[in-house]
Nucleic acid binder design. Structure first.
Lengths: 338, 338
DNA sequence: AGTGAACATTAAAGGGCTTACATTTGCAGC
DNA sequence: GCTGCAAATGTAAGCCCTTTAATGTTCACT
């Protein structure tokens, strides 16, 4: 492994000058730099990131906290799309992404600890359980951080406008003529789930529509199965809804399947609407009408906010909220005549 | 930031002893270790991974080369599932995962260069374009490496049995009574695509079935669109196939959509079969009959092979091949009477 | 020739950790 | 009380890089 000392020896300059040549210091003569760079190339020199980090205290590494243990992990369709777009700008600015787990080598250590050990310059958080004490510990630290799908004054946050999204969804269903609209919630435990539910309630009220107590049912973990189960409950009601707005696309798809298994056609007999617009939703039949989150923008802006925060230091926390859009496909239609 | 020196000062021991205490050296007295660990805890000490790496030459980091630039990235449904399972065992053994890109900070540097700079202990490769010169450069290096979906004597590789998979697919279609079976190939540029195509050809031959020249059409990039286009070609043929075996699920789904748009019902009028069993395939209508790759095993075994190779050093290269399985769903049926 | 500014280079320290080797301690055995 | 040996601890160098402060050079101008 060649080091700057090797280059120094070979070129006759000192290690200092070699280092400066690489770091574009103005006080090394153009010709000198040429010589050094040339020698470095010939010798196959590559800087050692660890050594550099040790002295500069800057690792050019960003920690990624990604949903773990839910079985989905990296496959999480929404976060996966966001991190992909995040990655592009981070890499472009010279950062590498490193997954930070809370249990490494079989021992529970926590997010903060592992961030410190690896000296990450900042952290992007894509978690679904924001009550996790290890997350809280990290949140209380002073590591530059951007969090997705959450809001807090303690860090920069990037969200879609869940409330408005729910509102638009209801608007759309109402515009089709629906009045008995139910909601499959993502659960109060999750931040977006709560917001979407609130948006739903508010939107219904603003239209003077009643929400029977059993018209809001919880779908745990945004999973297909729980969407299915939730829909079964809704279908068993005496006064069955004509449309269902689900807090996530997988929930919605589960609902569609439950409806179908009960002999109901979607959207002819009952309309179903989702949230997120994951890739899946285009391909199912009927293609899912849903509220689309702009994952590309979410990821990009999250990266920009984080990198700024790394550069500028702790400033005012930003809470970015991005608009969403109803994507009309095939799973909603006017209610059947009664 | 507390260092072992701080702990040394506080406890009265030397930095050496402190270091040894953390690293479970046998030559530090139990009581001494206690004291030191206790002090460390109180002082909030955490080891500095970079400093440690600098001296030990071991970073406890694994580089991940993941498809870039195809638009899918981390969302790649098959590789995403594999890396998730890979990650679990790597993390469990104490490794962290770091994404290695070829262009960092806006300049082309290549995979090998970035691996060296970050001193990764090993690399897992999930790429689709194995002709990339930067990948070749890495392959020629001596970094411990495991590659997915590829075979070469230069590194450990982990694959599904693509040939057998294609064979099983054909068997299944034949068992339903099909004789005019076409193939939408993943393209000869991709390793699994080639294997599946060969498997298809061999299987057809073994059944004495003819493959008209235009019964094999290439679907670039395994994308939905190209599956759609490929299917259109097949449907335009004078003697249209009764079943189509596609090299990937997205291709298959594209084919299904093309068939539908041509007024054909799947599977009543034409059967379509895929490969991979990505998450999507369960949810589309008709649910896709496909050849399932066992991503959990693929990822786990890839990790095991790589970690062994890191520990044991360069030994014989392993080429692991795992069996696949036909998952029967709804997209295939006996051919229509003629 | 002498002065000072501007430029070019270097020595040395430091960042946090490990490790080969050296030294001290404790204690059994005489 | 002394020797000798194992156990326990310490010294110091080294990993590779950056940076501050100091030294050395050049050159324009009086």
């Amino acid at each position: 492994m060649t080091t700057i000392y090797d280059i120094a020896k070979r070129t006759g300059y000192s290690p200092t000058t070699v280092s400066k040549a690489f770091n574009n210091y103005s006080d090394v003569r153009a010709k000198t730099r040429q010589e050094i760079l040339e020698a470095a190339r010939e010798m196959g020199y590559l800087p050692n990131a660890h050594a550099r980090t040790l002295t500069t205290k800057k690792s050019w590494t960003i920690g990624v906290l990604f949903v773990e243990g839910t079985g989905a992990g990296i496959r999480h369709p929404f976060f996966g799309a966001v991190i992909e777009s995040f990655k592009q700008v981070a890499v472009d600015k010279g950062y590498a992404l490193m997954f930070i787990s809370k249990d490494v080598g079989g021992k529970q250590s926590g997010y903060l600890e592992n961030c410190r050990i690896h000296g990450v310059d900042g952290v992007v958080v894509l978690l679904s359980d924001y009550d996790d004490p290890y997350f809280q510990e990290l949140l209380d630290s002073s590591i530059p951080m951007v969090i997705l799908d959450y809001e807090t004054a303690q860090a920069h946050t990037v969200c879609s406008d869940n409330t408005a999204g729910a509102l638009q969804a209801v608007e759309y269903l109402v515009s089709l003529g629906h009045r008995r609209i139910a909601h499959i919630s993502g659960g109060k435990g999750t931040f977006p789930g709560k917001q979407r539910e609130q948006g739903f309630v508010a939107a219904m009220e603003s239209h003077g529509l009643e929400i029977p107590g059993d018209y809001i049912v919880e779908g745990a973990f945004y999973s297909l199965d729980s969407g299915y189960a939730a829909m079964q409950q809704l279908l068993a009601l005496r006064e069955r809804p004509t449309a269902v707005f689900a807090s996530g696309d997988l929930l919605a798809q589960g609902a569609v399947m439950a409806a179908r298994d009960s002999g109901l056609a979607v959207p002819a007999d009952i309309s179903v609407m989702g949230f997120d617009d994951i890739e899946l939703s285009k391909f199912v039949t009927p293609a899912l009408t849903t509220v689309q989150q702009n994952t590309a923008v979410l990821g990009r802006r999250a990266a920009e906010v984080l990198l700024d925060s790394i550069d500028q230091g702790r400033g005012d926390m930003q809470a970015l909220v991005f608009p969403v859009e109803v994507v009309v496909r095939e799973s909603c239609a006017p209610p059947a005549e009664e």
